[in-house]
Simulated assay, not measured.
Amino acid sequence: MKVTPEADEKMSKMKFFSVYPHYVKKVERKGRTKEELHQVISWLTGFSEDEIQKMIEDKVSFAEFFQKAKLHPNASLISGSICGYKVEEIEFPISRQVRYLDKLVDELAKGKKMEKILRSS
């Protein structure tokens, strides 16, 4: 599937705080922790625990969220399909970055080892 400009705009306007509880629920349902989720978010974005919480409280959009982020240099190693899209083929930066996060959350929920999720081995 290919991301359209309209879908990219919709994703860019989506609020991080509205998706965040779904991330927490997904990982906790599979026996992982909120702390591990924050470790994954921090790895991808460079945000501290306090900065993640501030993004939630400020109800920032995904566009604002990723504009403030300092993506990890190994983020481009994230590949595979998520929600029917091949992450590495998404041309719109915000959509690709949101799908990076979705992919990492999915890997965490599936029980992958943290070293693999964080592309450190």
Rank of each mutant, 00 (worst) to 15 (best):
Ser81Ala: 14
Trp43Ile: 06
Pro73Gly: 10
Trp43Cys: 04
Trp43Gly: 02
Ile56Ser: 06
Asn74Tyr: 01
Gly80Ala: 09
Val60Asn: 09
Ile52Ser: 06
Ile56Pro: 14
Ser61Val: 11
Glu64Met: 07
Ser81Leu: 13
Leu71Pro: 02
Gly80Val: 11
Ser76Tyr: 07
Asp50Ser: 14
Gly46His: 04
Phe66Trp: 00
Ala69Leu: 03
Ser42Cys: 00
Ser79Cys: 14
Ile52Tyr: 06
Ile78Ser: 05
Ser76Glu: 13
Glu49Cys: 00
Asn74Asp: 14
Ala63Asp: 14
Ile52Phe: 07
Val60Arg: 09
Gly80His: 09
Ile52Thr: 08
Glu64His: 09
Phe47Asn: 06
Ile52Asn: 04
Trp43Val: 05
Trp43Ala: 04
Ser61Arg: 11
Ser42Arg: 02
Ala63Arg: 14
Asp58Phe: 07
Ile82Asp: 02
Phe47Gly: 06
Gly80Lys: 06
Leu44Ala: 04
Lys68Gly: 10
Phe62Val: 11
Glu49Trp: 02
Ile82Lys: 03
Val60Pro: 04
Ile78Leu: 02
Ile41Phe: 12
Lys59Asp: 09
Gln67Glu: 15
Gln53His: 11
Met55Lys: 12
Ile52Glu: 05
Ile52Met: 06
Ala63Gln: 14
Gln67Thr: 15
Glu57Thr: 14
Ile78Pro: 13
Asn74Pro: 02
Phe65Trp: 03
Phe66Gln: 02
Leu71Ile: 11
Asp58Glu: 15
Ile52Gly: 08
Glu64Pro: 09
Ala75Arg: 08
Lys68Thr: 06
Val40Trp: 07
Ser42His: 06
Phe65Ile: 00
Asn74Cys: 02
Lys70Val: 15
Ser81Lys: 15
Leu44Asp: 13
Asp58Tyr: 12
Asp50Gln: 12
Ile78Tyr: 05
Glu49Ser: 05
Ile56Lys: 11
Ile56Val: 11
Lys59Gly: 08
Leu44Glu: 10
Val60Tyr: 08
Ile56Glu: 12
Leu71His: 01
Leu77Lys: 15
Gly80Cys: 09
Ser76Val: 15
Leu71Phe: 03
Ser48Ile: 03
Phe66Asp: 01
Val40Asn: 01
Ser79Ala: 15
Gln39Val: 00
Ile41Ser: 02
Phe62Asn: 10
His72Val: 12
His72Leu: 07
Ala75Gln: 04
Ser48Glu: 08
Asn74Lys: 13
Asp50Trp: 04
Ile82Gln: 05
Lys59Cys: 01
Phe65Glu: 02
Ile52Leu: 13
Ser79Gln: 15
Lys68Asp: 03
Pro73Met: 07
Ile82Gly: 01
Ser79Tyr: 13
Ser79Leu: 10
Phe62His: 12
Val40Leu: 05
Lys59His: 11
Glu57Lys: 14
Asn74Phe: 05
Asp50Phe: 04
Phe66Ser: 01
Ala69Asn: 03
Ser42Asp: 01
Ala69Ser: 11
His72Pro: 07
Asp58Ile: 04
Phe47Leu: 05
Lys54Ile: 03
Phe47Thr: 07
Glu49Thr: 13
Ile56Phe: 14
Gln67Asn: 14
Asp50Gly: 13
Ala69Met: 04
